[in-house]
Amino acid sequence: MIHIENLQKKFGKNIVLSDLDLIIEKPGVFAILGPNGSGKTTLIKSVLGMVVPDKGNISVMGKPIKKNFKYRKKIDYLPQIANFPGNLKVYELIRMIKDLRQSPSDEERLIQLFKLEPFLDKKLSTLSGGTKQKVNIVMAFMFNSPLLILDEPTTGLDPASLIHLKNLIREQKEMNKTVLITSHIMQFVAEVSDIIVYLLEGNIYFKGSIEELKTKTGQTDLEHAIAAIAIEPAHV
């Protein structure tokens, strides 16, 4: 699915990713965790081709992503901050993305699920943060791509929508897709994810299942295990 070799990225003097290797082969939900500024978003954006790495190779579905843009048709992305062109209406935005991607989509069901019908005719600049995030989710889940990348999907969601989101992620898992998630909410991570990838100072510090993480750190819940992991002297 995703092969990352020797990935390196600097922003000025600040080394964000240093010689990172990551192979994600089988389907499932992968949680990319790490403290603030550990390079989670940079890693995700490198896979999407939004950030150009200084060094290293990335391939998605067996094809290198350099000088390639068609592979993004296989990826659905939910950005961290739901920034949309403010003067478009919700349905215009959805129509535009559909027009750009030219793939089959089932936005109707998602719009109903998140009760967005009353907002379809409203301009995006007038929506609240949570509603924007719902639009964001609809746009990320409406296509049937084999790879989903969700950057902080829970931001601003009410409890009911959060349940819908979890169900959607489980649905994707059952459809044998690969889902990458970043989040700071450990309860959410524990509920949906299979594998934890822990980033620290621009490199992968731990990769394994939640159970492995708990045994390794000797903690009983994920939140404490994650908090303990960086202090642990021995690592993988």
Binding site: K73, F84, R101
Partner: peptide
């Protein structure tokens, strides 16, 4: 930014 994540050059 929205467009950059889409399959567009």
């Amino acid at each position: 930014e929205l467009l950059l994540a889409q399959p567009v050059k």
